[in-house]
């Protein structure tokens, strides 16, 4: 008896399933992730404000933050968010919405160390994604150096 696997991926997406994604999909996913990170940073700021207000309501003023502090905070949030996402489900929320998944050089889910290295690289050198525009294999600078791949994956 032969075994038959029912493919849950829509018929029109099947030719692309498992292939490396182009730069438009990846930038769209990154935009969603940027919004998520911005919301988390903003939530952290307002959470800090709430604590300060409860600590001393009469002396409360909104704390002033420099761009440097803001960027470091956003970078830290992004690093943790990307590392945890890629090491657990293989996809961030943006990847999930756009039907993408990050794979290691074996085609499996990234290990924590690999995910952390890729996350750090993406935070420090985000423009590296634009190499996927001219790469003959749709790979970013991070993908080339860490041998990772971002593929279309519509499966759950």
């Amino acid at each position: 008896m032969s075994t038959h696997v029912v493919d849950a991926v829509p018929r029109e997406a099947r030719p692309y399933q498992g292939r490396r994604a182009g730069v438009v999909s990846r930038l769209a996913a990154n935009t969603v992730d940027f919004v998520v990170i911005a919301l988390v940073v903003a939530g952290g700021y307002f959470g800090l404000c709430a604590v300060l207000f409860l600590w001393s309501p009469t002396a409360f003023t909104f704390p002033e933050t420099s761009w440097t502090v803001l960027l470091i905070a956003a970078g830290a949030v992004a690093f943790v968010y990307l590392t945890v996402s890629w090491a657990t489900t293989g996809r961030t929320y943006g990847d999930h919405l756009l039907g993408l998944r990050v794979l290691n050089f074996r085609g499996g889910r990234m290990q924590v160390a690999g995910a952390a290295a890729r996350a750090a690289f993406c935070v420090v050198f985000p423009i590296g994604i634009l190499y996927a525009l001219v790469s003959p294999a749709n790979r970013s600078v991070q993908d080339v150096l860490l041998r990772s791949s971002v593929v279309y994956d519509w499966s759950r």
């Binding site: 498992g18 292939r19 490396r20 794979l103 085609g107 499996g108 525009l133 001219v134 294999a137 749709n138």
Partner: peptide, 29 residues
């Protein structure tokens, strides 16, 4: 977005005078 990926890839490949299709096959676990 997949359609946009394909269009952008084709445009860039044409500008770069690249004749071979992109090798987008990812490793299979």
């Amino acid at each position: 977005t997949i359609d946009a990926d394909e269009r952008v890839n084709r445009l860039v490949d044409r500008v770069l005078l690249r004749r071979q299709a992109r090798a987008t096959e990812a490793p299979v676990p």
